[in-house]
């Protein structure tokens, strides 16, 4: 097993109100999703290998990964649509393979391709879906439909893609789910619809101990919303950590007067990227300690530690992993 994990200089203890800022009651609750040793192969192709993943209850967890990393397969396994080749999944304490129907009562799922019957109107779609859920709330449904300004009499084929996604969100939320699963659903949405969508997800978090799981490419959009992030690469989880921990551990150092030993730099496991900028070097490291920031680096002087966006961190981590293989 070969996994490069984020080496934290100070371990994060969730039970204290420190990183993640979950109240103690929530932090000690069992995980919303717990995956151990998961593997999935289709014939000879191995899509997921020895995956361990934990999503704390009440968190907003973002699963990042390149196309083909295995995100959609993972979600299908989580919902019980596919069966694992090996390993264990417990979602809200249930096994998706055995208790799929009960799980789908408690989970709101919005898939990438938003399949719906285009001959049905918005109203017919809602009336088609609602009797199956025991916790369906007519008030929530009405409130959401009004907020999104959806025309109940319009047929689904007449709706824009953004409106279809909003309809899917109504269906996913109106039955008071404990866990909301979003698979790349805002791609192709215009900015306004996307903002409405995200705002509804944020509002839904209030006081309900609801967990949100995103699988997405739109790292820029996700960065505002999530407090945990997991990076999937080549079927394995590269790392998972609270976003703030990640952002405080992965920084870009501006260094002057360094020995230009490129090989040593590349070999060092904590150096993700190294590039020159005039006479200075910009080194992306993954073990930055805010308590005791480094003053010297490879013989040079550290002038500044620059914050990186989640997207930059993701790109650097994946690039390092790919260079290693």
């Amino acid at each position: 097993m070969h996994r490069q994990s984020l080496s934290l200089s100070h371990p994060i203890d969730l039970s204290k109100g420190d990183a993640g800022l979950l109240s103690p009651a929530i932090a000690s609750a069992p995980d919303a999703l717990r995956i151990q040793g998961l593997a999935k192969s289709f014939g000879k192709t191995s899509v997921l290998k020895d995956l361990d993943l934990d999503v704390p209850r009440g968190s907003v967890y973002a699963l990042l990964g390149r196309n083909g990393a295995g995100k959609s397969t993972l979600i299908q396994l989580m919902l019980g649509i596919l069966q694992p080749t090996a390993g264990q999944i417990r979602m809200l304490g249930l096994d998706p393979a055995r208790d799929g129907v009960e799980l789908r009562q408690r989970v709101g799922y919005i898939p990438e391709r938003l399949p719906m019957y285009d001959w049905m109107t918005v109203e017919e779609t809602l009336r088609f879906v609602s009797p199956h859920y025991r916790n369906w709330s007519r008030e929530d449904e009405t409130r959401l439909v009004t907020t999104f300004r959806l025309d109940r009499t319009k047929k689904v084929r007449e709706l824009s893609r953004g409106n279809i996604a909003l309809l899917a969100l109504v269906i996913a939320m109106a039955h008071d789910p404990e866990l909301v699963l979003l698979d790349e659903c805002t791609s192709g949405m215009d900015a306004i619809a996307r903002s409405e969508f995200d705002r509804t997800v944020i509002d839904a978090l209030h006081g309900s101990n609801r967990t949100v799981f995103f699988a997405s490419h739109q790292i820029h959009e996700i960065e505002r919303l999530c407090d945990w992030v997991g990076i999937l690469h080549n079927g394995r989880l590269l790392l998972q950590a609270p976003v703030e921990t990640l952002k405080s551990s992965v920084k870009m150092l501006r260094v002057t007067g360094m020995d230009k030993d490129e090989n040593a730099l590349a070999q060092s496991p904590n150096v993700l990227k190294a590039q020159t900028s005039g006479r200075e070097w910009l080194i992306t490291v993954q073990d930055y300690d805010e308590m005791t920031p480094p003053v010297k680096f490879f013989g040079g002087v550290v002038k500044e530690a620059i914050d990186l966006t989640l997207e930059e961190i993701f790109v650097a981590l994946v690039a390092k992993e790919e260079a290693r293989i």
Binding site: L79, P111, V129, H132, Y133
Partner: peptide, 8 residues
Amino acid sequence: SFLTSLPV
């Protein structure tokens, strides 16, 4: 997939 995602 819409049908299979229902709790049925």
